[in-house]
Design a protein around this nucleic acid. Structure first.
Lengths: 235, 235
DNA sequence: GATGATTTGTACGTATGTATA
DNA sequence: ATATACATACGTACAAATCAT
């Protein structure tokens, strides 16, 4: 449920890529498989074979193969010749490097947003942020997650730079399988909102430097929270 | 000739993506078509049809299709359903956004390089940079370009962050068709070397802030130079 | 380690959608 | 506007590689 918005950001990307309006079979497959991965139905490291996916979605292997190749380029799956595709399993160090990249990208977006957001965009950001406060107390993690995703998307858009938006969205999609569970940590929700509050405040008063720092720190905390959760899950 | 190294960075990326060692037909096609685009044989906006590419490389259309799909995801080509693929033609504003993104990414790499490069890496960067000085006076643009590419690759590597390396390499590949001709501008070569000198100096003395600023400015100048050349070419 | 079963890689054919006369 | 030519989308077939026993 909460994953719907997250998914749409991925699809949005795919759509922009191919400039598809209605959607060919391949496009549907890209979305469908991405959904399976992002929602966690297919877990990192899991193997997928073209045949199964083909029968599952009642298409031939050809569009499945093309979809897998595209997902591979996006980074959601990995392939080796003559072997089955696997859901990308980001190893520890790679995960760290992706979170660091995410922090840098979000810092850029926050900084540029502080400088470039239109009045309407600032208003929308603030309104959305205030609305999301309602879900903090209710410990409605899934509802909050929808706001959270939208919040970050607005941040990426606010930079007014198409390519940076793309890089940020792409990186976020690749991280989503590993960031999903962080809100189950006690108290993470209200802290997250507080961090957003810092970012929003800095953007609204046009303080680019503070916005960048706040965004960088926010992602760093998410990284640590995710790592904590991963340890909890295993230990 | 000078494009060889640039190409290899793209291929490197493709290789890491699919983890291919020897290379299937599709991988060869990805490289081959990317080469055609990056070297300028196929120009931005040019249409490609699967059949022609297939006979040109003496393979069936199937691997061509998959290669095109991957190139589309990378961003080198664009596709619409039932229409021919076209070499991505970055419109003015999009080109600006990509150069800005490149500047931000290179700034990050330079900053992190200043902090993280090993002694060996610093030595190599300096040595390579000094060697490249020989090609400045000779106005040997093509030879210098090889060094230039290697210089930037070392910068990306020096950040010691796999994902940032990937983002930077990817963005650079997408820009290369539009950056190619800049060195034909009078005096650009020696200025470029001077800009590199600033970056190298800052990295060697561990001044992260200065390195970041120098790298950002360097890319901004390249952008302006490329724009100038584009205007010259048309006017 | 060898063999049978699965799975991938590539070629090719047909149907459908798009451009052109 | 209709028809013809052409390019793509998807399905199917088979060889080669991989995996499992």
């Amino acid at each position: 449920m909460y994953a719907v918005i997250e998914i749409e950001s991925v699809l949005e990307r795919a759509e922009k890529k191919t400039l598809t309006r209605t959607g060919t079979t391949v496009e549907h497959m890209v979305r469908a498989i991405a959904d399976l991965i992002i929602t966690g139905v297919l877990k990192p490291g899991e193997k997928m074979d073209e045949g199964s996916l083909a029968v599952r979605f009642e298409v031939s292997r050809t569009p499945v193969r093309e979809a897998l190749r595209q997902l591979c380029a996006i980074g959601l799956v990995e392939r080796q010749p003559n072997k089955r595709a696997v859901v990308t399993n980001v190893s520890g160090s790679a995960l760290n490097s992706m979170f660091e990249a995410m922090a840098e990208l979000e810092a850029i977006c926050a900084r540029l947003s502080a400088e470039r957001m239109t009045t309407a965009e600032r208003r929308r950001l603030q309104k959305m942020h205030e609305e999301s406060a309602a879900f903090v107390g209710a410990s409605a993690g899934e509802d909050y997650e929808a706001f959270n995703t939208e919040f970050h998307t607005q941040l990426y858009r606010g930079a007014h730079n198409e390519h940076i938006f793309e890089l940020a969205t792409q990186t976020r999609a690749r991280l989503s399988p590993f960031r999903r569970a962080q809100f189950r940590i006690e108290g993470r929700l209200s802290k997250s909102w507080g961090e957003h509050d810092q970012i929003v405040g800095a953007i609204l008063r046009g303080d680019a430097v503070a916005a960048g720092i706040a965004a960088y720190d926010h992602v760093s905390i998410v990284r640590d929270a995710s790592a904590t959760f991963a340890r909890m899950g295993r230990g």
